[in-house]
Design a protein around this nucleic acid. Structure first.
Length: 548
RNA sequence: UGGGGUGUGGCCAAGUGGUAAGGCAACGGGCUUUGAACCCGUCAUUCGCAGGUUCGAAUCCUGCCACCCCAGCCA
């Protein structure tokens, strides 16, 4: 991670700053989550950027919780967020801070602003403030309280702090310019009254600073050399700069904005994600279908794959919509080398081998064709085996290479079989198959001379373990969900549960993830029981051929 | 409507006056006891559009167009 020569406009800028000796000390960044929700893959982009830069430039990164709104924040999220960042592979070391750590200093800076006649206490109601702010095309109107004497402002602000006023009755506002074309500069609110318990400061405060006042000051106090945030804060930069320019502080970080990650068929808004949980569309915030880091983890996606994805998507100011294929690619690429292979059937179909007699034969198979270090296991073959229903077709599509009536196919690591008969139940559904095998076609010592076109996986009756296989797909059917009724956009097949089979050795193996040959990568649910192991599909294998 | 941004192949993205990197996807081929992996090859005469400057422009200038963000006492 260290020696990579990543090029993007932010890293280029940092290199220039270093070359021009504009940076005092070391490069310092921060990741500032608000503890009001779980981290998702969009956050991963920011985490990889901020922590990645610190790693590359021998700098430091603060993990700073932006906890200025006690109404929506809670300590559970603080814990979860830390777990997710660690899982992703980053370490803030001793640099864990909270915006609330700075409440006393923030308050002092606010008084300083009042003393400099740069802030005033405003008695207007929330509605009145909105009405007097103006519109995009109309300037705002100055508050009647705008020119209160310094002493009166100071007195009122101190009484706000003491708790003498109700929520919403007064705010502290910056005195900037009600005619500014940038609405953020029209005397923005700096402090509001919230009589609520804060997860860290308890009941010490009943006034809480707003983001625009807090963030820039925290950045400055921590010596953040590059304050990176997403594009929607671009309009706030003049305010960020204004605050730091109007208080007595000796450091002024530059705010640099980049575009946030958008992923096809995926929604990342906390509001909508929460709705999915509440309405039981998914089971929880860490459901394997969720784009949360916890969800990705429970789906078996390795942290390294997420990091690689973030590296490949780049960092720019352009709006983007990433295809899910890139993430899938990163996941497979990560799992390919290290994951043992196994055979699994989602829809088992019994096949009776008519010419097999006696004990089941044992066959050896490597866990990975190329990575011999993963070792091998023993499979068995006998008079009753199972194949996947999708690997047999009475009326095969063109170029079908699997089993068909009278056709032959290779059973992976075992023998070639030939279908002799299709057995049906009373409804005419295929119940089982009868086939013969070619004893001289044993894998590795085949002298049969037969050349089957395809190879399919199988599990013999005595070697079969019953498992649950859960296949996941996108949660939404629309590339850009959120524009329509959520319900109509949901993918009804985002989770399909199969009562399947795997070879016993897979269940006994300790590896967390497997590749089920010809199907995909799966994570063994660590919480599932040994009597019914559950496997979550992490990713499909790429398909070089599709029926129809 | 005012302000702030962004426009390079299907999706990302290099490039900052010298004649369009790379990745993903797609397509064709090789290899193959995973239709996987792997290996080869193809894929922008053109950089939102129109003018202009220049020997030379994706890069400079002018005008236009499209899209995104902003009117929380959220962050």
């Amino acid at each position: 991670m260290k020696n990579e020569d990543l090029r993007d406009f932010i890293r280029n800028r940092i290199r220039e700053d270093i070359a021009a000796e504009r940076i005092p000390g070391s490069v310092t960044t921060r990741f500032p989550p608000e503890p009001n929700g779980y981290l998702h893959i969009g956050h991963a982009k920011s985490i990889c950027l901020n922590f990645g830069i610190a790693n590359e430039f021998d700098g430091v990164t603060y993990l700073r919780f932006d906890d200025t709104n006690p109404l929506t924040e809670s300590p559970e999220y603080v814990t979860a967020i830390q777990e997710d960042i660690r899982w992703l592979g980053f370490d803030w070391q001793e640099n864990l801070t909270f915006a609330s750590d700075y409440f006393p200093q923030l308050y002092a800076f606010a008084e300083e602003l009042i003393e400099r006649e740069k802030a005033f206490v405003c008695d207007l109601s929330q509605d009145e403030i909105r009405e007097t702010r103006g519109t995009f095309s109309r300037p705002g109107v100055e508050s009647p309280y705008r020119n209160r004497p310094i002493q009166e402002n100071l007195d009122l602000f101190r009484r706000m702090r003491k708790g003498e006023f109700e929520n919403g009755t007064r705010v502290l506002r910056a005195k900037i310019d009600m005619r500014s074309p940038n609405v953020n500069m029209r005397d923005p609110v700096l402090y509001r009254i919230i009589h609520a318990e804060h997860h860290r400061s308890g009941s010490d405060w009943c006034i809480y600073p707003m983001y625009d006042f807090t963030h820039c000051i925290c950045d400055a106090l921590e010596g953040i050399t590059h304050s990176l945030c997403t594009l929607e804060f671009e309009d706030h930069r003049p305010l960020y700069d204004w605050v730091l320019d109007n208080i007595n502080i000796n450091f002024h970080p530059p705010q640099i904005e980049f575009s946030r990650l958008n992923l096809e068929y995926t929604l990342m808004s906390k509001r909508v994600l929460n709705k999915l949980v509440q309405s039981r569309v998914v089971e929880s915030w860490d459901d394997p279908r969720m784009p949360t880091l916890a969800g990705l983890r429970n789906r078996g996606i390795p942290a390294a794959a997420v990091r690689e994805f973030c590296r490949r998507i780049g960092v720019t100011k352009q709006d983007n919509l990433m295809e899910t294929e890139l993430l899938d690619y990163c996941v497979r690429n990560e799992l390919e080398q290290t994951t043992p292979r196994g055979m699994a059937l989602r829809n088992p179909l019994r096949v009776d081998i008519t010419n097999f007699e006696g004990e089941e034969v044992e066959l050896s198979a490597n866990w990975h064709a190329k990575n011999k270090e993963l070792g091998s296991r023993i499979l068995t073959f006998g008079s009753t085996i199972f194949i996947d229903r999708s690997d047999f077709a009475e009326d095969p599509p063109p170029k079908y290479k699997r089993l068909v009536p009278d056709g032959i196919v290779r059973l992976r690591y075992a023998f070639i079989i030939q279908c002799e008969e299709v057995i049906r139940d009373n409804n005419g559904e295929i119940e089982s198959l009868r086939a013969r095998y070619f004893p001289e076609s044993r894998s590795g010592e085949d002298t049969s001379g037969l050349r089957p076109k395809g190879v399919i996986q199988f599990v013999s009756a005595q070697n079969a373990a019953t498992v649950q296989i859960r296949d996941y797909d996108r949660l939404f059917n629309t590339r850009i969900p959120g524009r329509d009724e959520l319900e109509s956009e949901l993918n009804p097949d985002s989770r399909i549960v199969y009562d399947g089979m795997v070879e016993k050795a897979v269940v006994d193996h300790t590896a967390p993830s497997f590749q089920f040959e010809r199907i995909g990568y799966y994570l063994r649910d660590p919480a599932s029981t040994t009597s019914l192991p559950i496997f979550h599909r992490t990713a499909k294998l790429s398909e070089g051929w599709k029926p129809k």
